Amino acid sequence: MKRYPGEEVPGLAPAGSLFARLRAACLTEWTAYIDHAFVRQMGEGTLREECFRHYLGQDYLFLIHFARAYGLAAFKAENLETLRAAGLGMASILDEMGLHVDFCRRWGLGASELEALPESRATLAYTRYVLEKGLSGDLLDLYVALSPCMVGYAEIGLALKPLSGPDHPYREWIDQYAGEAYGDVARASVATLDDLMARRGGVGRMPDLIRTFREATRLEADFWRMSLDRAD
């Protein structure tokens, strides 16, 4: 029987957790995502403002669909604990959207202007992939598709935190995802994955779950690339 070991993700996922195992199985794609040029430039403070602005606009639209995905998770919840987890995920996303609006007000963009933006192809591809996984699969499929975003942003925030200072142009973004509140959301996502795996999974599901995790991670990297290139 094939084993899928996974090392600890410090502060976020214990060794052997489903998230750690999925991350380890897709380490090439994961590294391309969390160490993307967009992320490195943001940490260095050299990312062009127009790229960050393009990212924020598309990410606002992205988060609307991810909030819907957690609504779908709530609908599919089999017990109160899973229902609460879906509610926590949705609340976190709505909080993220507030940060985006605060940033974009500096450029004269409010929530209504953000909602009216056209979706890029990268936004369409990623959000529809996650929603399709939730519609065609079960809760475990959906949470695996969500996890590169929900946990990956916490890992990125913690990695960039030492680079952030009072005058860093992206300090607020970094502080949001490196903060304890978002860390709690990421750790709750990791725990929910383990709970769902215990109740609905088994080693026979791992190949399909790895494929889902890998594709979602690739789509995350594509989202960074779209933002860096300011592509439609």
Rank of each mutant, 00 (worst) to 15 (best):
F52T: 01
G57E: 06
F66S: 04
H36I: 01
R48S: 13
A15D: 03
A20I: 09
F66C: 05
Y70V: 05
Y55Q: 00
L47A: 04
T46H: 00
G16K: 11
G71S: 10
Y60R: 01
F52V: 02
S17H: 07
A13E: 07
I64S: 06
T28R: 15
L72Q: 03
A69Q: 06
P14A: 15
T46M: 02
Y33M: 14
R68G: 09
Q58K: 06
L61W: 06
T31M: 13
H54F: 12
E44A: 15
H54N: 03
A20D: 07
E49S: 14
W30Y: 15
Q58W: 02
A32P: 02
D59M: 01
Y70R: 04
A69P: 04
L47W: 03
L47E: 00
E50D: 14
F38W: 14
L61S: 03
L22Q: 11
A15E: 13
C26L: 06
L61D: 01
R53Y: 05
F52I: 01
T46Y: 01
L22N: 13
E49M: 11
D59P: 00
L22Y: 13
C51P: 02
L63S: 09
L27D: 15
A37K: 09
R48A: 15
L63G: 05
Y70I: 03
A20V: 09
C51W: 00
Y60H: 10
F62Y: 15
E44T: 08
G43R: 04
A24N: 12
Y70K: 01
L22C: 14
F38T: 04
L22M: 13
R68Y: 10
Q41T: 02
Y60T: 02
E29C: 09
D35L: 08
L22H: 09
F66Y: 14
L72N: 04
E44K: 13
Q41A: 14
E49D: 11
A67Q: 10
R68H: 10
I34P: 00
D35H: 13
A25L: 08
F38P: 03
